[in-house]
Simulated scan of single mutants.
Amino acid sequence: MKKILQRCALCCALWGVLVAQPLAQSLDALDESTFELVNLYQQKGITSVQEKLESYLLSVPYWLKVVGERDVSYGYFQTTRYVFVSDKALPDLRLFKVTNQGFELLGSSSALVAQGKGHKKLEGDLTTPIGVYDLTARLSGLPPYYGPLAFATNYPNTYDRSLRRTGSGIWIHGLPLDGNREELNTKGCIAIDNELLKKYDGLVDYRDSIVIISEGELRTMNAMQAAQILAGLYAWKEMWKKGDLAGYLKFYDKENFVRQDGMRYKAFAEYKSRIFAKNEEKQIEISGIDIAPFPNGEGREMYRVNFRQDYRALLNGKVSFSSSHRKDLYVWLQEGEMKILSEK
């Protein structure tokens, strides 16, 4: 049924090209690419048109056109609406709203962070983490130390877990309600003025917000990097869908890949080899793509890629496995090619 609906949608789109204006005018207005698609449909049917359209998604020039003049310094987002950015070396906290043009600054202030330097590694090391984190909850009714409310993060994320970093309870919260501000360090959180925090609470929904935490100036993203990652993401999906094991594994960093559960590249490749050997038909759809520059200590152009993945495997026409969830890839660009360092 899903394939039938997809084909109907493609047919309607093609027909819309022709009926949106008088036929003679529309034929004159057809550009070369549209003519190619219509001709392909006439000769080989709608499946060939779908394959052609999907091939564009593997193209860096296509994604450069999608990004256009948009500012993607703090990321390319299809679902995220608000981005907190903190440089813990200052320390500060800024809030941006994601717009069609890029980012609108909603607020900026100094902040308090933990005294530890570098990446947070262990529970109780009094260090604020570095990386990209989802906001997972809005907390209230807390002890007065945390101010009027807090936004919880998902530290440790997939990448942290792959490196066996531990700890929990990393929040964006307020200052002590009793006015005692003698303590200038947190236990690992980011703390800001209570009135500003309440203002932010009235602006954002934590469910579509993230925080990017760096130590020193953030290495931002540009349009070419966003396009290379987007094209790489769809090429990775295409290799997976086709069952091309060698092509699929080329997207993984042989030297540095570690899955969240500790599985390294060699074991991962052997595991995937067994899966691919089943010769299942795969239906893979990805949507709601968010890409954010990922601060790290390795000096890499590193990014978190988060998206919705709908997956179905069929064996002899019957569904053998299915899943639907948001997926994380932690990637870097090696001479413009996407390489996966960790995934969940």
Rank of each mutant, 00 (worst) to 15 (best):
G317R: 06
R219M: 08
R161M: 13
L203R: 03
L249R: 06
I286A: 00
F321E: 14
A292L: 10
Y133P: 01
Q6Y: 11
S214F: 02
L105I: 03
C8G: 08
L197K: 05
L245T: 01
K266R: 14
A9H: 11
A111T: 03
A24F: 08
Q283C: 07
Y41C: 14
E281R: 11
L27W: 08
A13P: 03
M1W: 08
N306E: 07
G299T: 00
A191H: 05
R304N: 12
K121I: 04
L95P: 02
S214D: 07
L57S: 05
K88H: 06
S320N: 09
G16T: 06
D310F: 04
I190S: 09
F276N: 04
A227M: 00
K318E: 15
I291K: 04
I212P: 11
L27V: 14
V319F: 01
K318M: 13
K318Q: 15
P61G: 02
Y252T: 06
E337Q: 12
A223T: 12
M239K: 13
T80D: 05
D178S: 05
H119I: 04
D261L: 06
C11M: 12
S342N: 07
R181W: 09
G247N: 07
K187E: 15
D193C: 06
K282H: 13
E343L: 08
K199N: 10
S273T: 15
T127A: 01
C189D: 09
Q78L: 05
L175Y: 10
G167H: 01
G262S: 05
L197N: 09
Y303W: 00
L341Q: 06
G317K: 07
R326Q: 12
G68W: 09
K120S: 03
G336A: 06
G116I: 02
E183Q: 14
L196Q: 11
Q228K: 09
F96C: 03
L40W: 11
D71H: 00
E36G: 11
S108Y: 14
F321V: 07
I212A: 09
Y82H: 13
Y303E: 02
E54H: 11
W236I: 01
G169S: 13
Q260F: 08
I130K: 05
Y271K: 15
K339I: 11
P176G: 07
L249E: 07
P144H: 10
S342I: 08
T79S: 10
G262A: 06
G202R: 12
G131N: 01
K272L: 01
V98H: 01
K199F: 10
E104T: 12
R304V: 15
D244E: 10
R312K: 15
